[in-house]
Amino acid sequence: MSQVALARRAGVSVSLLSKIEVGDRALTQGIAAALAQAMGLTLDELLGTAPVGRADESSLTDLNYVVRRFEIPGPPPPHPEDLPYALAELNAHRHRTELSAVLRKLPGVLADVTHHAHATQSPDAWTRVADTYSVVYWLAARHRWMHLAELAVMKQRSAAERAHPIAATVAARDEAGAFLNSGDFAGGLAVVDRAIVEAQSVLRGRERAYGLGILHLRGLTLAGRVKDKATAGQHIDAAWRVAEEFPEDIEDHGIHFGPENTAVHVISTASDMEDYRESLDTAADLIRGGLTLPATRVAPLHMNISRSKLALGDRDGALASLEEAWDVAPEMARVHPTSQELMRVLTSLHQRSNPRLTRLAIRAGVPF
């Protein structure tokens, strides 16, 4: 396929495609999805999956084994009272973006919560199973192991059918995330729309606000990827309205929601829609007010700040923000496609004499 044919089929200009190819412009997730569709690929196939370290291979094998045996009961754990603490510890590793630690502990926790749920058949137990599969989805999505991510959300939905109603809302949010990570943004929006209607009818009180909030955050991200400003604006407005019910961000079911995380998502979506100045202004206000979010949210924030600065021609500022992301969450930065793409463009544009970029490239394992 010629460059002209690919650009036409993907709906992008030949000039933009050429600049992306030679490293003058960063490849956004939205354009990457359009290129993938034009070539008959999924987004993860175009971007490639993160490799599994030798030390993590056995843990990934164990995780796949436990996921596969979801409906096969095993011996219940001897101390079920410890399960909430085990899941909380797992989410603590997640929030610190300690990917290897999550992978190492996840098979055992997942097996224990699943066997306990089969033994008790209680909604509390099945909600814990669904929450643990949310961690599986998150880990798989970070590495772009999309087969595992999609399998995880299927099991999560199945567990949610036996759990408290909020579990179905979280599962829908993660299912829409699987569509997002695969580049099917329209499909993800359809999942979000359906889940919002359901959440409005079955959830009550603070749980309802939280559930709607995390769904609207997913919706605004999906709409931003296709540059649908009207739909993105609707989700942004709705997310801010719900966020007003939370004086500060909360963490529930392993996912944060509140004013700060809403701002983080708005910053990312503004950058997706090429409103770079708005993105940076919102980010400046957020950082000035002080951040309480974990590394899982702060690192992508700095990546999106870097992305906006780079688009506005501030290469040194982009490098500084990317360094911030690496300092906050090195394991995530190593596998995150935005971080990888920023490194590709910065090493293409900068001179080799830049010692800070050279150090970061060595840290990232990028030839430079």
Rank of each mutant, 00 (worst) to 15 (best):
D281H: 10
A163W: 03
I214V: 15
A178R: 04
W126I: 06
T127H: 07
T97M: 11
E175A: 09
D281I: 08
P294M: 01
E324I: 00
Q234T: 10
V14C: 03
P337V: 06
G254F: 07
S2K: 12
N64Y: 02
P80K: 06
G11A: 10
A172I: 08
E341Q: 15
V264P: 02
A88F: 07
E248H: 14
R356F: 02
R194A: 15
L103M: 09
G40T: 09
G108T: 10
E89I: 01
A88M: 11
R162I: 00
P51R: 10
Q351P: 05
L189A: 04
A55G: 02
I362G: 04
E244A: 14
G108P: 09
Q200L: 07
F185T: 02
R352P: 02
L17C: 09
G289W: 04
G213E: 00
V202A: 02
V170K: 03
R68N: 11
L217D: 04
A176S: 15
A160F: 07
G365R: 07
Y137P: 06
V22P: 03
L99V: 01
R54I: 08
A320W: 05
R69G: 00
T49V: 06
H79R: 13
R363T: 14
R288H: 12
L27Y: 06
P51M: 02
E260H: 11
E274K: 10
A86Q: 14
S158F: 03
N181P: 01
Y137Q: 08
S58R: 14
E248N: 11
A130N: 05
V335A: 03
L215T: 07
I214E: 02
V226R: 14
S308I: 05
T49W: 01
R344G: 07
R206A: 04
I267P: 08
G213I: 06
A167M: 11
F257Q: 04
A238K: 12
S134F: 08
E81L: 12
A34V: 00
N64L: 15
A92G: 01
M303H: 09
L349H: 04
Y65H: 13
A88D: 13
L47R: 09
T28R: 12
S321A: 15
H79G: 00
E324K: 14
E323K: 11
D56F: 01
F246C: 10
A209G: 15
A333F: 06
F185I: 02
A7P: 09
G205D: 04
R157S: 10
S182I: 00
H118K: 05
G224T: 06
A92C: 01
L47P: 01
D285G: 13
E89Q: 14
A329S: 13
R162E: 00
D112P: 07
P75E: 08
A299E: 07
A284D: 12
D275R: 13
H302W: 12
M303R: 11
V202E: 08
A125Y: 04
G177C: 08
L110H: 06
